[in-house]
Design a protein around this nucleic acid. Structure first.
Lengths: 116, 116
DNA sequence: GGTATATTAAACACTTTGGTTAAATGAACT
DNA sequence: AGTTCATTTAACCAAAGTGTTTAATATACC
């Protein structure tokens, strides 16, 4: 438990893939889109000004990082969010909490307002 | 305030650079090292099995992402952590909080134990 | 069966990344 | 002034990333 708070063993590969996956706007957008509910590849591609094939590749990157789960539904692929790996990234960032403590505190207050 | 919680305007470039910077183990290690106090380039390079020039480039990536601040001190460059941009990444990830809520709650409990 | 639709695969071009070694810069020491 | 130390720059290379266009594949519809 909290193995991502403990000294880094070899979550390194995961973190590499996760952060790498997050480092492209189309991929972050795709995550935001599926956070709103499952989406087909075409739906995910629609807002972006690149080819369908390009988006397909981005989705593969997300899938490989474990952030996207894909379910075949007829000829459509339903993509849904698998956010668990994000908590690893979140956990890594939390190490640096102390360096922006005030900001984070404000965030938590804000979230509490939202969720209570 | 909370402009990283609001609809994305053009933090995109920042987030690209920040997540990209975090996507390499040497760079994450460097951040961990400077979190412990300022370090020279040589000190940061020491634990890693690559050339000094390679580490120098990694540090440049961190600097460009705003995660590292460098101060010239004689012939030594003192690198210290500038974690503020990490809070942007943190904030982006927080959008997905709901998808791993239980884990995050456990984390917060853990942190409270630590900091009180 | 034949055709449209959804998606991926293949082949290609181009850029970026991450590494190397060797030379350059610039401060510090004697 | 000359040398040593800390670091970056330059030139180079292989591999990975991001995009394209044109197949191919597989399901759905008539």
């Amino acid at each position: 438990m909290f193995n991502w708070m403990v000294e880094h063993q070899s979550d390194d590969l995961d973190l590499d893939a996760i952060f790498q996956a997050l480092a492209h706007p189309i991929r972050r957008a795709a995550l935001e889109q599926v956070a709103d509910g499952p989406k087909s590849v075409s739906e995910l591609a629609a807002p972006h000004d690149v080819s369908l094939a390009a988006v397909s590749k981005h989705l593969r990157v997300l899938e490989d990082a474990g952030l996207l789960e894909v379910e075949q539904d007829g000829r459509v692929r339903r993509c849904h969010l698998a956010a668990a790996p994000l908590s690893e990234a979140f956990g890594w960032l939390t190490r640096y909490r102390v360096f922006w403590e005030d900001r984070l505190d404000a965030l938590e207050d804000h979230l509490e307002e939202d969720t209570t």
